[in-house]
Amino acid sequence: MNIFLNLARDIAELWQEYAGLYLTGIWNTLSLAVICTALGCIIGLLCGILNTIPYSKNDNILKRAVLKAIRVLIQIYVEVFRGTPMILQAVVIYYGLPYFTNYAMRFSNIWLCALLVVSINTGAYMAESVRGGIISIDPGQTEGAKAIGMTHWQTMLFVILPQALRNILPQIGNNLIINIKDTSVMSIIGFTEFFAVHKNVTGTTYLYFPSAAIEMAGYLTLTIVASFLLRMLEKKMDGSSSYELAEVDSLTMAAGTYKNPDKTNYFDERSREYKEDK
């Protein structure tokens, strides 16, 4: 019993002293994760769309070459950023920029670097998800859209992407939760997210366990709230499971018995012709 009382006292002490730091850390972690998940989705969306532009043997060589090159580049991007640890990517980018520009350029703002690294990393994961989401929509709908004269882009925008996005929403949620946790590695380049606060605070107080307990509770709260909100969003996007019958005059239901009186259309023209024939 005593031990828990001690823990509570230590936590209270830490909180009294460093609440401001912890809260700033939470805020930084949350904003970094949310912004980067959004940016990553945009990157992934672009890659996924570029990756699925159709081409056929009849297209000219230049178009085919460009599209093929795009696919290869995206593949390289995905492999590199999915296949290396984000903590390393952060170091490589943060120290690589000054190194390669002979110290003419460096990240003046640590936010900029962190945003860049996490977005690019998320984008690499989302690129594959989006591509999968797009090709999972049955090609019949694409043909249906083509058959009424919609272009590839119109089909993408109005038919395919809305469904693909709905289908990959769970993966977007996954990425957000992963980002909330994994942005902790950004402390390596000195970004003060939530976990960096723990390192700073324990450096002076040596209260490792009580601080870690605060961190655990903080991260868990963030991720649980995030997954709850995402679940709500999914429900909302699915719409209601039932529909209301529109009120119509029952006489108009049978095929062909209804004629819109105040408009001429194809059929009216036809029937006029028929009358003239007779």
């Binding site: 019949g140 249906g144 058959a147 919609m150």
Partner: peptide, 30 residues
């Protein structure tokens, strides 16, 4: 294609749209 309509064996309706929207999107966009 907008002058030559096609009806498929497998319907090929747009699953993300209501019946009404299915019949409107081509008119508005195309």
């Amino acid at each position: 294609r907008s002058h030559v309509g096609m009806v498929f064996q497998s319907f090929n309706l747009f699953n993300n749209m209501t019946v009404l929207e299915n019949c409107m999107v081509g008119q508005v966009q195309v």
